[in-house]
C-alpha cells in the first residue's frame, strides 16, 4: 500500500523548469532514495513531497491530500530534515529535540510529562544521553546530525523525509548515521524518503532508488536496476564503473 503518492509534480521558477511531471509512489515501510546529479531537482522534490514547497501536482500522504491538511496535521504525518538544518544559537539539545513535539501539543501549549518521556527515549536511543544540557553549537558534526534525527523521530510520524542526511559527515559517521536510520526505521516502522549524492551508500541501504535528471525521473527500481554504468556516465558526465563486491554494489570513478 502506498503511504505517499506524488503525482504529476511540476515546479517552475520563472522560465526554468525544476521538476517536470514527476510521479512517485512510496510504499509503507519502504526506504526510497532519490539520486541524481547536482541541479536534478532532488531537494525540490523532497520538499514538495514534505508539503513545504508548492507545485502544480498533487501529493497525498496516508490518503490525505497535503493541500487539505493544516500544518499541524501534516506535521503529525511527516517529519522533514533539510540538508542544512538551522542551529539556533544558545539552544540546548533537550530544548531542540523537544521542538519535535510541537504538532502534538495544543495550540500555544507547552510540553507535558508524556513529551519529556518520549524525548528521553529518543535521546537514549540515539546515544545522546548526557548531551541534554549542552548547546547545539558545542556539538561535533556527527552529534549534531543525531540531534536533527532525534527531533524528527520525536515528532513520531509514520514517514520521515531526509535531505542529504550524510553530507557533512566523514565516511565512518555516514555509515553510523545510515545504520541508525536503518535501526530506527525497524523499531518505529517508519517509511524513509531521502536524497543522497553517494550512490554506493545509497544502494546499500535503500529498498528502491529513483534517479532524477533535469527534473525528470529517468530510472526507478532496485539499486541494481538504477545503477547502470552507461546511464550514469551520460547523466553525470562522469567516468564510472559499477562493481559488485561481496553482494554490495559499488560505484567507483575511474581515471581516463
Amino acid at each position: 500500500m502506498s503511504i505517499c503518492v506524488a503525482a504529476n509534480i511540476d515546479v517552475r521558477l520563472g522560465q526554468t523548469t525544476i521538476l517536470d511531471d514527476v510521479s512517485i509512489a512510496v510504499s509503507a515501510g519502504e526506504w526510497v532514495t532519490i539520486v541524481g546529479p547536482n541541479g536534478a531537482g532532488k531537494s525540490t522534490l523532497l520538499s514538495v513531497m514534505a508539503g513545504l514547497s508548492r507545485s502544480s501536482g498533487t501529493v497525498s500522504v496516508d490518503g490525505h491530500d497535503l493541500v487539505d491538511l493544516s500544518p499541524r496535521r501534516r506535521a503529525r504525518l511527516l517529519a522533514y530534515v533539510p540538508q542544512q538544518p538551522e542551529v539556533p544559537p544558545g539552544m540546548s539539545v533537550n530544548s531542540y529535540i523537544l521542538l519535535g513535539r510541537t504538532p502534538h501539543l495544543s495550540l500555544l501549549g507547552v510540553e507535558g510529562p508524556r513529551d519529556f518521556e518520549i524525548v528521553q527515549e529518543v535521546i537514549d536511543q540515539l546515544d545522546l544521553t548526557g548531551f541534554g544540557h549542552r548547546t547545539l553549537e558545542s556539538l561535533s558534526g556527527g552529534e549534531l546530525q543525531r540531534c536533527h534525527l532525534a527531533r524528527a523521530i520525536s515528532q513520531a510520524t509514520p514517514i520521515v523525509f531526509l535531505d542529504e542526511p550524510t553530507t557533512a559527515l566523514d565516511l565512518g559517521h555516514q555509515q553510523q548515521a545510515l545504520d541508525l536510520i536503518k535501526q530506527l526505521r525497524q523499531e518505529h516502522q517508519i517509511t524513509v524518503v531521502m536524497t543522497m549524492h553517494d550512490l554506493t551508500l545509497a544502494s546499500q541501504y535503500s529498498d528502491r532508488m529513483v534517479l532524477l535528471s533535469d527534473g525528470r525521473v529517468v530510472a526507478e527500481g532496485t539499486p541494481a536496476q538504477v545503477l547502470d554504468p552507461n546511464h550514469l556516465s551520460t547523466l553525470y558526465g562522469a567516468r564510472v564503473r559499477v562493481l559488485e563486491i561481496e553482494g554490495d554494489i559499488v560505484v567507483v570513478p575511474i581515471s581516463e
Binding site: 513545504l52 499541524r72 501534516r74 522533514y80 539556533p88 521542538l99 504538532p103 527531533r151
Partner: peptide
C-alpha cells in the same frame, strides 16, 4: 507571552518551523 514556545519554534527558520506544524 502566549507565543513564548511558538517563538522558540520560529528559531528554526520558516521551513523547519512549518515542518513541525506551525504557520
Amino acid at each position: 507571552l502566549l507565543h513564548r514556545r511558538t517563538l522558540d519554534v520560529m528559531r528554526l527558520g520558516d521551513a523547519e518551523a512549518s515542518s513541525v506544524g506551525i504557520r
